[in-house]
């Protein structure tokens, strides 16, 4: 690694002050599982590294008025262990479990995963399918936006060099919304997704139709994306396996995967159809189980 200066932030406010002082030649260090790898391989790095791994105020998982707030520094392991998240969104637990391996899940953070902006991120789809918001803080104060607007392109987010991702909020109307996550990688541990899919839905049990279905896809476009046409197809439609399969086929048309050494674009498109259908089945099964438990 090239030489840099290391400063440590006590909390998010301190981190923002340090960013204001050192941006744009500074980088935030959270879990380090991506940043340190990048620093080791790049001949020129940032002059200052701002270590926020001790900022306790960014490590909170809490129920708030606006919804469920997950601090940007919550690690993937902490998501897996959180009783609150396990109960409300098992899909987030499943997604966290597919990331890296135990060691990297203990270091890597939810915020870090989103900030990388990589299209194959495993945290993205479920949050997108739950209409999550992100809170960003900078010298001008806080701003909040839908997660979908946070991603700009491959490895690009809306964050300015002096801004910090604070928290991820799942809005209160979606608390407990049945969601399901599926990932297809070349092996179970330490593998990037060839395709990952999340689906969420409410059910109108009287009519037995889909209500506000959401489908999100990863690793098949420059950013994690929603599949709005497939969602529109399902909205208000009677819940059948055929409808789910059709939604999968429609979702294929909304993706623009690339071919690389991991998989061809054609293979990824086939995966989208299958995984979307299965994710919808999973979300529906969860909805049913929740209803029966009541």
């Amino acid at each position: 690694m090239r030489a840099f200066e290391l400063v440590s932030a006590r909390d998010s406010r301190h981190a923002v002050a340090l960013l204001a002082e050192h941006a744009p030649s500074a980088k935030i260090l959270a879990g380090g599982t991506d940043l340190l790898v990048d620093l080791k391989s790049s001949p020129r790095g940032p002059e200052v590294i701002i270590d926020i791994s001790r900022a306790e105020d960014l490590k909170i998982i809490a129920r708030k008025d606006e919804g469920l707030s997950i601090g940007a520094l919550v690690t993937h392991s902490e998501i897996m262990r959180s009783p609150l998240i396990r109960e409300m969104f098992p899909a987030l637990v499943d997604a966290a479990h597919t990331i890296g391996a135990v060691q990297t899940r203990n270091l890597g953070t939810l915020g870090g995963n989103l900030v990388t902006g990589v299209p194959s991120m495993d945290s993205g789809p479920t949050l997108l399918a739950l209409d999550a918001l992100v809170t960003v803080v900078g010298p001008a104060g806080r701003r909040q936006m839908p997660l979908a607007e946070f991603f700009v392109g491959p490895r690009k987010t809306i964050l300015k060099p002096d801004e910090l991702l604070m928290e991820i909020v799942i809005p209160k109307q979606n608390l407990g919304k049945p969601a399901y996550f599926l990932k297809f990688g070349l092996r179970k541990g330490q593998a990037l997704a060839l395709v990952n899919v999340a689906a969420s839905l409410w059910v109108d049990w009287d009519k037995h139709v889909f209500v506000t279905p959401r489908i999100a896809l990863g690793a098949v476009a420059p950013t994690v994306i929603r599949a709005p046409k497939a969602e529109a197809y399902l909205e208000g439609r009677a819940i059948t396996l055929e409808a789910m399969a059709e939604a999968g086929r429609i979702a294929v048309g909304e993706a623009k995967p690339i071919s690389d050494f991991r998989a061809s674009a054609g293979y990824r498109l086939d995966l989208i159809a299958v995984l979307t259908k299965r994710a919808l089945e999973g979300a529906y099964a969860l909805a049913k189980a929740k209803r029966e438990a009541k």
Binding site: G31, G32, T33, L36, Q103, T104, N106
Partner: peptide, 22 residues
């Protein structure tokens, strides 16, 4: 780069890749 686990140590009770921590 955090792939092989040969550098695993336990920090505050949790296993981590020591190559990925400063």
């Amino acid at each position: 780069v955090g792939d092989c686990g040969a550098c695993t140590v336990i920090v505050d009770g949790k296993p981590v890749n020591s190559c990925l921590m400063l």
